[in-house]
Amino acid sequence: MKLKKLLGLALSGVLTISAIGCSKTQPENIDEKGNNKIVIGASAIPHAEILEEVKPILQEKGYELDIKVFDDYTLLNTALDEGSIDANFFQHVPYLEDTIDGQGYDLTYTAKVHIEPMGLYSKSIKSLDELKENSTIAIPNDASNAARALKLLEDNGVIKLKDVESPGAKDIAENPKNIKVQELDAAQLPVVLVDVDAAVINTNYALEAGLNPTKDAIIIESKESPYANILACRTADKDSKAIKALTEALNSKEVKEFINEKYSGSIVPAF
C-alpha cells in the first residue's frame, strides 16, 4: 500500500511539473480565449497596407495578425458583430455611429489612426470655375459620407445646405448652378467618373483607382477633418489584452512614420 501511495505521489508530481512546463510555452500575452491570433477585417488600401506594418510589432508582443480584406465595406461591421472577425479597420466615427443606430450592433472603437481627406475629382474639368450649369456630381450613397461630401461642396461655394446635423441631397437650400447630385455606392464612384461631370470620392477608393488626392483632386477636405479612420471592435472586447495590443501598435511611432512616408500627405496620421 505504501509503495502504491508513493508511486501515486510521484506521478502527481510529474503531472504538476508537466503542466507548469506547458504553461510556460504559451505566449505571455495570450488573450482571454486562449488564442494568440487576432483576425481583423479591412479595406485593401490604405487600411490593409497599414496593417501589414503592424504585423511585426504584434509579433514581438506574442500575437499573430490575420488580415482579411473585404471588397464590400458594408459587410465589415456585420462580420464584426457576428464574430467572424475580432476587429475592423476601414471606417470613420460617424459611419460607425450610423451603423450602430441603424443595426443595433454593440460595437465601439479604441483608436483614431488616420484621416483620408475626401476630394472632388473630374475627367472633364480642372477647377470649380469650369463647372457648368446642370452639371452632375456623384457622391457616396451612405448617409455619413453623403453628408461629408455635401459639406465639402458647401465649404467651396458650390451649394448651400440647410442647418441640419447630417444633410442629404434633399437638404440643399441653395443651388446656383442647378447641380444634379447623384448618390451611388462609394466603391463605384471612380468607375463612373467618365459618365459624370465630377464625383466626390473617398481617398481609399481614389488611391485604388490610381488617383493622387494631393495632385488630382479639384478640392479636398482640410487636414482638420473630423472623419478620422478608427479601429473598431465589439464593446465586450474593448479591454481585452489582444485589442489593447492592436490599439497600441496602430498608434505607434512606426505606423505614423509609415503613413507619412508612404502617402506623402494624401493620408494624414490622426494621433
Rank of each mutant, 00 (worst) to 15 (best):
K123C: 01
I220L: 10
A217D: 13
I172F: 07
T235A: 14
K33R: 12
D106P: 01
K253T: 11
N141Q: 13
D86E: 05
I50K: 00
S84A: 06
I67E: 04
V93E: 11
K215N: 12
I38V: 08
A138C: 09
K68F: 12
D31K: 04
I85S: 03
L131W: 00
L150P: 01
N35Y: 01
G265V: 00
A198G: 12
G62M: 02
D129G: 13
A79G: 07
H114F: 14
S222Q: 07
D195N: 14
T108V: 09
D129E: 06
G119E: 06
V196E: 13
A206Q: 10
S144M: 05
E165T: 12
D197Y: 08
N36I: 09
P94Q: 03
L51P: 05
N145H: 14
V200I: 08
F258T: 05
G41H: 02
M1D: 12
L211C: 06
I38E: 03
S18V: 15
S127W: 04
L184T: 12
G102P: 08
V192L: 08
E32P: 02
I267W: 10
N88A: 02
A228E: 13
K112H: 07
E130N: 03
D197P: 02
Q103Y: 10
E28Q: 15
A228G: 07
T110D: 03
T110F: 05
N175C: 07
Q59K: 06
E53T: 14
D129Y: 12
E165P: 11
D86Q: 03
A242I: 00
M118C: 11
L207E: 00
V39G: 03
I67M: 01
P46D: 06
G157H: 04
E97F: 12
K256M: 11
E254T: 03
G119C: 03
I85E: 07
E224L: 13
K24W: 11
V93L: 07
D142Y: 03
G62Q: 06
I40P: 02
R234W: 07
I57K: 08
V164D: 04
I179C: 02
H114Y: 15
S18M: 14
L9H: 11
I38W: 05
D31P: 05
V268T: 02
N35I: 10
D71A: 15
I67Q: 00
Y73E: 15
T136L: 10
K223V: 13
Y121F: 04
L75Q: 15
V268A: 05
Y73K: 15
D106A: 14
A143V: 13
H47I: 06
I57P: 02
V54A: 07
P226R: 02
A232F: 00
K238I: 02
S124N: 08
Y121A: 00
A146F: 01
V14S: 06
I267F: 01
V200T: 00
D195G: 09
D163H: 12
S43M: 14
C233S: 10
T235N: 15
K215T: 05
